[in-house]
Simulated scan of single mutants.
Amino acid sequence: MANPDGFDYAVRGEDVVVTHHGRPATTLRGRRAAAFLEDVRNEDPQELMARLTGNYRRGNERQARQHPRNRGR
């Protein structure tokens, strides 16, 4: 699976705005914003932002569709 890229974040007051390729993806407020800023120091920021925005499932969808359990759906 390819590593996520193209994510960036900006702190605006107490909010954190996450963008993907320059377009707003999500806005974190309050405790979620504080937790994000703490986690971004310890983890891979690109992967963390991909998980937060739901943009992390790439590469294996076609393989899963061909699995015997999923055929006929």
Score class of each variant (00 low, 15 high):
A25D: 08
R69W: 12
L52M: 12
Q66D: 09
Q63K: 15
E14N: 14
N70W: 14
N70I: 08
F36G: 05
R57G: 00
F36V: 09
G72C: 04
L28G: 04
G22L: 13
A64I: 11
L28Y: 04
V18R: 03
Y9R: 03
G59K: 00
A64P: 00
G54T: 04
E14A: 15
R51Y: 09
L28R: 01
E47L: 04
E47F: 02
M1C: 06
P4R: 00
R32I: 02
R71M: 07
F7G: 01
R69P: 00
R73V: 08
L52A: 06
E61L: 13
A25V: 12
N42A: 11
D8P: 02
G13W: 03
R73K: 10
N3C: 09
G54I: 07
T26H: 07
E47M: 04
N55A: 12
A25C: 11
N3S: 10
R57W: 05
L37T: 05
R41L: 11
F36Q: 06
G72L: 06
A64E: 07
V16P: 04
L48G: 07
A34I: 11
H67E: 13
N55M: 14
D5E: 15
Q46V: 03
G6D: 14
A25H: 09
N3A: 11
V16W: 01
L28P: 00
R69Q: 08
V17Y: 05
F36I: 08
L52E: 07
A10C: 10
G54M: 10
A64M: 14
A10V: 15
F7V: 03
G6S: 13
R51K: 12
H67F: 12
L37Y: 05
Q46G: 02
Y56S: 02
R51W: 03
H20F: 15
R65T: 06
R57C: 03
F36L: 09
G13P: 04
R73S: 09
V11D: 07
N70M: 12
V17T: 11
D44R: 06
F36K: 08
R62M: 10
G59I: 02
D39E: 15
Q66E: 13
V11A: 09
T26P: 04
H67A: 14
H21D: 15
P24A: 15
V40N: 04
F7C: 00
R58T: 06
M1A: 09
E43V: 13
R69F: 14
R57K: 09
P45N: 08
H67V: 04
E43A: 14
R58Q: 10
M49D: 02
V16T: 07
H20P: 07
P45S: 09
F36P: 03
R51E: 11
H21I: 13
R65H: 04
D8E: 15
A2K: 02
R32H: 07
D39R: 14
R71G: 03
G13M: 06
T26M: 14
P45H: 00
A34H: 10
A33C: 12
Q66H: 11
G30K: 08
F36D: 02
Y56H: 05
R23A: 15
F7M: 03
T26Q: 11
G13K: 06
Y9A: 01
G22D: 15
E14P: 07
G6C: 10
G30T: 01
D44S: 10
Y56C: 04
N3D: 13
R62L: 11
G72M: 06
R71S: 02
H21C: 13
R23Y: 15
E47Y: 01
Q66T: 03
R12D: 15
